[in-house]
Design a protein around this nucleic acid. Structure first.
Lengths: 243, 243
DNA sequence: CGAATCGTTGATTCAACTCAACGCGAGTGG
DNA sequence: CCACTCGCGTTGAGTTGAATCAACGATTCG
């Protein structure tokens, strides 16, 4: 575990953004054991019904979480960028209620549930950071309910572009104006409750109006402010500050 | 605070369903100070942008939480029945990202944030129960994303009927087969991402097929199993067991 | 009794879906 | 090296589920 320390330091810094940590808290995190795991594109990290024993911290690549409904339709409920904790909820929930799958090749660090739990209660700042992390995630889900429930295809799509850009930037992964998104149009549709065909048309219309620029499997935001307005996006629900 | 003890006992029992508590945990909860507050129908308990200082435990009546989007549309993101903790997330999030409003006349018990937080870390079982509570809530949000994103009006409506019935029953508020729901069709629409007119037609079609029976402002489930199938409902995401 | 709110129903429109065809680049194997 | 497939993006034509618009009925309440 040569680079384990670097990974755990990144993990500690992420938590530090959620709640102030002491030097002691930092040291306790860096002392955790963790095993690195590489995942291929489309591979499942977790399936509905599983009882995972580890918590996964995303190091590189993108993951997404999704549910399957009766008619075979798929709904993506979140997209994860490096620095995210992917399955914190299973610390306390037991049986997984959805799937986690790789969007691209990805690397995760896995930490045993019981160690994360022990840390949360032996070091309250860490506990608060982790709890806050899961509450922010819940806030994002609420916004997604509103997004698919009450915005049309244009606004919905613009909103997701803004959210992903903002989260990437907040995670220190580059400026929001030029980020790229390696999702297929079908995957974007499954995240937005639209069909791939309609996503294609919607993206085209956003491009024709000069809000975004597309190339292959990526999207770059060319007019942030107008995209933000079209997507009815404000970052308050991401709770990027410390409260 | 004559009946404060009874209320706090109910609160403790609710948490006990989420994670096993000791006698000491119970006593610590019952020793909390709490102030009761009565709310009129449609009154706001919290608004987006507020910084609440209390945690609200719903004693009687129904509350709902919602977001407003750019075009004025409203999306209800959850409906609360007695026994629910309505704004636990603001313990750690600071600024509210949505509104909480009364559906009917309601009574809540309010407990200061800092006392709930202290209890969570001085009594880890209580902390785990509270954390688990917020993770279950997040799971319900995920299911709602899938519901509004990938199910048609019939399934969506049936699903919500099943969920509310199941949660009511799990909270000990009566059998799921005969529960009643005092929401207007407009409110149901705002929870499902539909218009009131279409909710009216959808409910009518569910009734015509013998799945539900409507009277005034309420709905009774007459064929649970078929409604469950139509709504693609399973209770796994409610995590009713202890994990 | 009148006003307000909510539920009901019909007619019409529209946003998004479905179906289908074709383009295009990346592999891949003969 | 080319032909082939495969996955994905693109575009058009036609359909449909849900929205919109509008009117009217039922119930409650001051």
């Amino acid at each position: 575990m040569a680079d384990g320390e670097a990974i755990l330091t990144a993990f500690a810094k992420r938590l530090e953004r959620r709640f102030p940590l002491t030097v002691d808290d930092f040291q306790a995190i860096v002392a955790l054991p963790c095993s690195r795991r590489e995942i291929e594109p489309n591979q499942y990290l977790m399936r509905e019904g599983d009882r995972p024993k580890f918590c996964s911290f995303l190091i590189s690549g993108l993951l997404f979480r999704h549910k399957i409904v009766a008619d075979g339709g798929r709904q993506i409920v979140s997209v994860h960028t490096p620095g995210d904790l992917v399955d914190l909820q299973n610390i306390l929930l037991g049986e997984a209620d959805h799937n986690v799958q790789a969007l691209t090749a990805a690397g995760v660090a896995q930490i045993p549930h019981e160690l994360v739990m022990d840390l949360a209660f032996s070091h309250p700042n860490i506990g608060k950071a982790l709890w806050r992390e899961s509450m922010i995630e819940a806030s994002v889900f609420r916004e997604w309910v509103a997004n698919v429930g009450r915005r049309d295809a244009r606004a919905r799509t613009a909103h997701m572009m803004c959210e992903l850009a903002t989260r990437r930037e907040a995670a220190g992964l580059g400026r929001r104006e030029t980020y790229e998104l390696p999702m297929t149009q079908e995957q974007i549709g499954d995240a937005l409750g639209l069909t791939a065909v309609h996503v294609n048309r919607t993206l085209k219309s956003l491009q024709d109006e000069g809000l975004i620029v597309r190339s292959k499997r990526s999207v770059a935001i060319s007019d942030w402010e107008r995209l933000r307005v079209v997507g009815d996006f404000t970052s308050n629900y991401l709770h990027l500050g410390r409260g």
